[in-house]
Design a protein around this nucleic acid. Structure first.
Length: 1006
RNA sequence: GCUGAAGUGGUGGAAUUGGUAGACACGCUGGACUUAAAAUCCAGUGGACAGUAAUGUCCGUACGGGUUCAAGUCCCGUCUUCAGUACCA
């Protein structure tokens, strides 16, 4: 074999790597460790397209590079294999999701193997594997058995909380930890029933069962987390989402808000990603301000409306309060006179869905409650309004309205004729509110007049705290995360219910395996799919799962309590398994722990994490939360999962469109009269150039008229065709990109086979007889028929070409369209590389042991330097160019010296591992090239004695001049000034100034 | 609206601290080889103008200003695109 037969070579080395476990990482090693991780894929039925491997290629290059650098590299891969698509498919076809998932994984693996990744497959994880989700369930139990102390900012075992309750109740705890629960003493606690104790503890556990308002998606039949909703509809399927109260498991992530925010500081993530997380956490610093309600009725005395504001300095500008329609206080404070009006308003707003309310920003609606509250500082009475611009879910669901300083309050006040008070020095508020806080001086505000925002705020908070009407407060937008899903294909909870209270199953009985069911839909009574299982009850006598028929019905039906209870019917969300998988890779086969302490102490956390930016708020936030929790409880030594993170940009597809003619619009140029004429009796499809060519459109129009018997009106248009502008109404339609060649020509016969409904369509071609489609860049997706399959690329050009071309497309983090057209450049580079090692028409291997030329060594070392810098900066696209330059230069130098080619091969091997292994073995190495040390850059080969100086005149480069590098400034200047070109350009003028930067440039200012 | 990123040839993109703008590819044009095609190789390729030519002049990194001997790069302002986010008080 001497020609570059990439298919044989690639298959050979892929087999070699698998058989020799070349990339197996050891948990014990003298070498320093490095952990490179990809976000693991969801194995969908569609398989991989060329966009998927982009990040994997980048991380693989880095992992291989780190191995050459002498690191013990952990580079695993696995599957996020629980999820909705498998379940939807199961509902449609009746196939068990486990079966389709397994098939999809096999297909993924086949595709991944073909690209030559250096994954350590011995550590593969699958979130849907019971041996894996056993530990997901275990972590859930730990969360249930823990509480969070705000004062110490740490999670602790719930048993310690029980100790506190037994000794001192929760009095001190509320003040210290702000859990805001009804207070009880130790005596009270000790007198509580077991049931009552459990209910109280649920308010403190890090995962808890509570009736909460959730995002319910009727079409999907499940609840969704906030990050699974985009623009008011579900992320998957774009179905409407409504608010609904349901009893659900939730994760108390909100208590970690501050730590999740602070933790970002020390992470090497992009600023934009950190910013996205900061926005999601949404910290705002301000004050709570209490307004006491004043009403004629005795019973209303003492009701306080707590508001939150980030602008305590504007408190003297308050002229009314606004509370959300859903606020519980509405009922309590509304006066008798206003009751009907308020009730009507609330009914109206409740009718609106979340989405409508979001869309309806411009309409200002609200109603007066009739009640007043006392301003905490001025003691004046301010009216209390209800307005739907106040959200029940944020802060306290009530705002102190300062119309002069907030545009929404301003608009509301204007609309309802509520007075506006100006409290800003020299600011005109007749047109709009003034919301800038910087540089504004407060006026008309008693003791804070004349102060700036900052000082005024401090003084107000001080005053409020003094008379117990408010205090400094920090608010977070981050809500607790709903953790229940009404689905089949997810982790079952290790939970059963005794007297309606959740009980954890002892960890030693895990995993709790998913039960078998007939159909994967919710039950007729609206229970989740697990409600269909017959064997889904927990026998506390035998600690096994038993038939539902045996369930103890003591309380309901008077039977004996036989110790058998119903199991939880919900399953966990997709992010459960993905929140901790990076640690399972460290010790994937461990049966006693989610990973051994030794393994986790050795590997610590992920040094480099690569994946898509769509996980910026979901996965990355949740896994940081779980890691902080596991760290608190001593299960992990690290408290952040991912040190460095890179988001690879999406690879887009170039969709192909054909254009179907609907009808013609005829617009008279003279009198603007308009006529729509509908001709096509059959499908007419137009080649691309016709779309904007008025002459062609007119011809087409006339030919259509001739096909039918035209009426008077149409004949009129035809007779005066130049007096009309003819426009076509067209209907773009996706064509499969595989039916289109590089020149955008569509294979019409193939298209008709693909879409039989076009069998009789008329295709109107270009003048040269070809039929062209138009192209548009879109997300690569099966439904847009623009998917390019990496298998096809590997087949035609090889995996090494695919790897290098994906890198060559552009910067890793940037979104870019895929175009197979340019791939030949990279492919012929590899062929040239191959040829460097061969001679005589590629027939014989020909590498010489002679010393290399100075030029070749210079090329080599220049390349080492640049490639190393590029890898470390993740600038893989430029290193591909560097390789091309090197091979072009070495070819020109006719270099075939081992001294140069061997190190070059090591440099290239992370990018193109197969060809590198092959040539490496031809160089008579018995071990894999992955064991070779990275070449060392030596400055001495780049040292030059001469420099080609660019000579500029007034900043414009005119010529170059070769000069020795060791010349002084003055010597350079005199050499330049006496040069004939300089004299020519100066044309007799004397230069005003000559700038000489030795080693760089000369600029003559004339 | 807010936050973040970006705007460079026909195309993807280089230019890391201000110092020869357009590296490297694709595409295109011409040529060699071939019966022909593919493959391969060679040459040219930002735009405009002048010249038979070598070559020369001018314009050029979204737009308008500025700093500097020198600006794609720094500063001020404007526009556009993409992404995220939003009655968040």
């Amino acid at each position: 074999m001497s020609k570059y037969h990439f298919n044989e070579i690639e298959a050979k080395w892929q087999k070699y790597w698998a058989e020799n476990q070349t990339f197996k990482a050891e948990n014990n090693s003298e070498k320093p460790k490095y952990y490179v991780l990809d976000m693991f894929p969801y194995p969908s039925g569609a398989g991989l397209h060329v966009g998927h491997p982009l990040g994997y290629i980048a991380s693989d290059i880095y992992a291989r590079y780190k191995r050459h650098q002498g690191f013990n590299v952990l580079h695993p891969q696995g599957y996020d294999s629980f999820g909705l698509p498998a379940e939807q498919y199961a509902i449609q076809t009746g196939q068990h999701p486990a079966k389709t998932t397994k098939e999809n994984i096999a297909r993924y693996r086949e595709q991944l193997d073909r690209i030559g990744f250096s994954f350590d497959w011995s550590r593969e994880v699958r979130t849907s594997d019971p041996e894996y989700y056993k530990w997901t369930q275990w972590i859930f139990i730990q969360l249930f058995e823990s509480w969070y102390c705000n004062a110490l900012e740490q999670s602790f075992p719930i048993s310690e909380l029980i100790d506190i309750f037994e000794e001192e109740g929760n009095m001190g705890l509320n003040a210290k930890c702000g859990n805001n629960q009804p207070e009880f003493s130790a005596e009270m606690w000790n007198s509580f029933s077991e049931e009552k104790k459990q209910k109280v503890l649920l308010n403190y556990r890090l995962t808890y069962l509570a009736e909460t308002e959730v995002n319910w998606c009727p079409q999907l039949g499940t609840v969704l987390a906030n990050d699974e909703i985009v623009n008011g509809v579900s992320e998957r399927g774009s179905f409407p989402v409504i608010r609904k109260k349901m009893t659900q498991w939730s994760m108390r992530i909100s208590v970690f808000a501050e730590r999740l925010l602070q933790g970002l500081e020390k992470l090497d993530w992009t600023e934009s990603l950190k910013e996205t997380q900061r926005n999601w956490i949404g910290k705002s610093v301000g004050a709570s301000v209490e307004f006491r309600v004043v009403n004629e009725k005795e019973e209303f005395q003492g009701i306080a409306i707590k508001t939150f504001t980030t602008r305590p300095d504007t408190i003297y500008g308050v002229t009314f309060l606004t509370i959300a329609p859903e606020n519980d206080l509405v009922d309590k404070i509304t006066t008798i006179e206003q009751r009907i009006e308020v009730a009507n308003y609330i009914t109206e707003t409740a009718k609106q869905s979340e989405r409508e309310r979001l869309a309806d920003v411009k309409n200002i609606t609200g109603v007066f409650t009739g009640a007043y509250a006392k301003h905490p500082l001025t003691k004046e009475l301010v009216p209390i309004w209800i307005g739907d611009y106040v959200l029940a879910g944020y802060g306290t669901g009530a705002v102190m309205a300062v119309p002069c300083g907030d545009q929404r309050d301003y608009d509301f006040a204007k609309h309802f004729d509520i007075p506006i008070k100006n409290i800003f020095e020299g600011i005109d508020i007749s047109e709009a509110a003034h919301s800038d806080k910087e540089g504004t001086i407060i006026a008309n505000s008693d003791f804070i007049s004349g102060y700036s925002y900052k000082d005024a705020s401090d003084k107000v908070i001080e005053a409020l705290e003094k008379n117990h009407r408010g205090e400094k407060e920090i608010n977070y937008r981050l809500r607790d995360a709903v953790f229940s899903r009404q689905r089949y294909w997810g982790e079952p909870f290790p939970v059963y219910y005794k007297n309606g209270l959740p009980q954890m199953i002892d960890a030693k009985h895990l995993p709790i395996r998913l039960p078998e069911i007939e159909k994967y839909l919710p039950t007729e009574t609206g229970e989740p799919p697990l409600g269909r299982a017959d064997v889904w009850a927990w026998d506390t006598n035998t600690n096994t799962i038993v038939s539902n028929n045996l369930v103890s019905k003591s309380e309901i039906e008077g039977y004996e309590d036989n110790g058998i209870y119903p199991l939880e019917l919900n399953t966990m969300p997709g992010w459960a398994g993905s929140s901790w998988y990076m640690f399972r890779y460290m010790d994937a086969l461990n049966n006693n722990d989610f990973a051994s302490k030794e393994a986790m102490d050795y590997w610590e956390n992920v040094d480099l994490y690569i994946g898509g930016s769509e996980h910026a708020t979901g996965h990355l936030l949740y896994s940081r939360f779980w890691v902080k929790f596991l760290h608190d409880r001593g299960f992990l030594s690290v408290d952040e999962p991912f040190k460095k993170l890179i988001n690879q940009g999406m690879i887009l597809g170039e969709s192909a469109f054909i254009h179907r003619l609907r009808d013609f619009d005829c617009k008279s140029i003279n009198d603007n009269s308009f006529l729509r004429l509908k001709f096509p009796s059959k499908l007419i499809v137009l080649s691309n150039s016709i779309l904007n060519d008025q002459e062609k459109i007119k011809k087409l129009f006339i030919s259509q008229v001739n096909n039918i018997s035209a009426n008077k009106k149409t004949q009129d248009v035809v007779d005066n065709i130049n007096a009309f502008e003819i426009l076509m109404n067209i209907d773009p339609f996706h064509a499969d990109v595989s039916l289109v060649n590089a020149s955008n020509e569509l294979d019409i016969e193939a298209f008709k086979n693909w879409r039989p409904e076009y069998k009789d369509a008329e295709f109107i071609a270009e003048e040269d007889g070809t039929f062209k489609v138009s192209r548009e860049v879109e997300k690569m997706s099966k439904s847009k028929y623009n998917v390019v399959n990496p298998d096809d690329i590997c087949e035609q050009y090889g995996a090494d070409t695919l790897r290098m071309y994906e890198m060559f497309l552009g910067p890793l983090e940037q979104a870019k369209p895929w175009s197979t057209a340019g791939i030949t450049g990279v492919h012929s580079f590899l062929k040239k590389m191959w040829r460097l090692f061969h001679s005589g028409n590629e027939e014989s291997f020909n590498v010489s042991e002679d010393a290399a030329s100075k030029d070749s060594l210079k090329t080599l070392h220049k390349t080492i330097k640049k490639v190393q810098e590029d890898i470390e900066n993740f600038s893989f696209n430029t290193s591909v160019s560097t390789f091309m330059i090197a091979v072009n230069e070495l070819t020109a130098q006719k270099c075939n010296s081992r001294e140069v080619l061997e190190p070059l091969l090591v440099l290239l091997s992370p990018y193109a591992p197969h060809i590198s292994e092959e040539l490496w073995s031809k160089l008579e190495h018995s071990e894999s090239i992955s064991t070779a040390a990275f070449p060392k850059f030596e400055e001495k080969f780049l040292v030059e004695s001469m420099k080609k100086y660019p000579i500029s005149f007034n900043g414009k480069m005119r010529c170059t001049m070769e000069l020795p590098l060791d010349l002084s400034k003055d010597e350079i200047e005199s050499a330049v000034m006496t040069h004939e070109k300089t004299i020519h350009y100066l044309d007799g003028r004397t230069p005003k100034k000559v700038i000489v930067v030795p080693g760089k440039i000369v600029n003559i200012v004339g």
